[in-house]
Amino acid sequence: MIGIVNYNIGNLASVINAFTKLGINAQIQSDPEKIGQYDKLLLPGVGAFGDAMEHLKSNGMDKAILEFANSGKPLLGICLGMQLLFECSEEFGSHKGLGLIDGTVVKFDEAKFDHPLKVPHMGWNEMFVQRDTPIFDELPKDFYLYFVHSYHVVCDDKYAIGKTHYGYEFVSAVQFENIYGIQPHPEKSHDNGLKILTNFAKL
């Protein structure tokens, strides 16, 4: 059974719909005490980094997620949920994240873009797979997914399992042992996204 962390920052209808469509058992959970019971944990997220961390801390959900990650069971962060896995973010001042993976979260630096583009990065873009990882099983070396974000992760290449080009190349998917993060929204990315959720369920 997959647990989907609910911390009051947006609706989870699309994520739960996707698992239902795929015939995968998943449950929305807002009680930190019950997080440990799941085989896998999904950390979704839209909105602002600081607000999200505050919500997670308000009832001890942050500690429950850390405990889960340390147990070795698979954890997947999506979009903001991926960014929260890192140490800190510069979004609206500096905020500490969960610190499960070394790295930071920064705003797209438009001054470095190779041609003018709009921020947020919103729409379909290509994920270029960097190395073999079970979460991208049976997917091609590059494929389209749906992105909505203004901030992105900066981390060592050893964690990067996927990169995307938007003005410049940035890390759009990461893995560190049992911890996975993906910047685009698999639950809104048609067959490619559903494949990623299926792969996660199979871990």
């Binding site: 041609h115 583009l117 990065h121 729409g123 379909w124 873009n125 290509e126 389209y144 080009h165 938007y166």
Partner: peptide, 8 residues
Amino acid sequence: MDYFAKRI
């Protein structure tokens, strides 16, 4: 190279 897709 730009891969960012125009949407239909």
